[in-house]
């Protein structure tokens, strides 16, 4: 009885699934889905030439690079993008001394605070324990200032996008004029007013204007500030902000793997010894 009911139920589900398949196949054959502009023109992100010190089997942070990237964030990105998950004290991991961190925190002067005498809201210089201040008071202010688009928080950007480090680098260096082919085949996907074409962005058009231009920052270490260089550095910095534990994690991982490999060999030998008499054919 169970089998009879089962066979009927099974045939029922299979019939409806195949019916849906038939309808879908008929629709696909008679009215194939048109190719989308994203499908035809979106490009996969690529890493900068030369790669990074934090990829590969034994990663490390290039502290000078992270400092340059921080400078790019501070002088360029921070005008519109927050870094909510980070505090100034975190900068000590970028090779700054305690005093340098204090000075750096104090150089940010727009930390929301309370006047200790009147209790009124004021803006004050930062302390190492403060978080990075957001550029806008709220999303409405952010929208109003940015052509109705909210600049996303950058703390986790490289983890919030597929292949994130490459994505940040590619997006920053990928601005270009839309091709003539895009204009003829997908006129609707041409950048509208206030939008900019970038094949690394999911829907090809983003509100952010090209943020970097050559020599926009002056690096303290004398590195020439090309767009490529700044994009490479800030992508490295944002990889660190997204995952400060990355290097420690992978390095610890090798120790753990070494230990586990040793354990596995021991466990195998123990198993072999225990089973030796059970395998014997007597």
């Amino acid at each position: 009885m169970i089998r009879l009911v089962g066979i009927l139920v099974g045939l029922g589900f299979a019939f409806v699934a195949l019916l849906a398949f038939g309808v879908g196949a008929y629709n696909a054959a008679t009215d194939p889905a048109a190719e989308t502009a994203e499908h035809a023109f979106h490009l996969e992100s690529e890493m900068p030439e030369g790669g990074y010190s934090f990829t590969g089997p034994i990663p490390s942070w290039d502290v000078a690079q992270l400092q340059r990237g921080y400078q790019v964030y501070k002088e360029v990105c921070s005008a519109c993008h927050s870094l909510n998950q980070l505090a100034f004290r975190d900068l000590s991991e970028l090779g700054y001394s305690e005093d340098e961190v204090k000075a750096e925190a104090a150089s940010w002067t727009t930390i929301p605070g309370i006047d200790p005498t009147t209790g009124e809201a004021v803006l004050r210089p930062g302390l190492p324990t403060d978080g990075f201040p957001a550029p806008y008071a709220n999303d409405v202010a952010a929208r109003a200032a940015n052509n109705n688009a909210v600049p996303p928080d950058l703390s986790l950007m490289t983890k919030a996008r597929h292949n994130g480090t490459a994505y940040v680098y590619s997006l920053l260096t990928g601005y270009q004029q839309p091709s003539a082919e895009l204009a003829t085949r997908f006129p609707d996907s041409m950048p509208g007013p206030g939008l900019n074409h970038n094949p690394y962005f999911a829907n090809l058009n983003l509100a952010m204007a090209p943020p970097l231009s050559d020599n926009q920052v002056t690096y303290a270490d004398g590195t020439p500030a090309t767009v490529e260089q700044m994009a490479t550095d800030v992508a490295a910095f944002l990889t660190w902000t997204a995952e400060p534990s990355l290097v420690d994690r992978v390095r610890l991982g090798w120790l753990v793997m070494g230990f586990l490999l040793f354990l596995t060999v021991l466990a195998w030998l123990a198993k072999k010894q225990v089973w030796a008499d059970a395998k014997r054919k007597d």
């Binding site: 066979i7 099974g10 589900f13 299979a14 019939f15 398949f21």
Partner: peptide
């Protein structure tokens, strides 16, 4: 993808129930 999942789904039920 949907067409493939429809075939796989049909087989899934046929396998266990038929």
């Amino acid at each position: 993808y949907i067409m493939f999942s429809q075939i796989a789904t049909a087989y899934y039920f046929l396998h266990f129930l038929v």
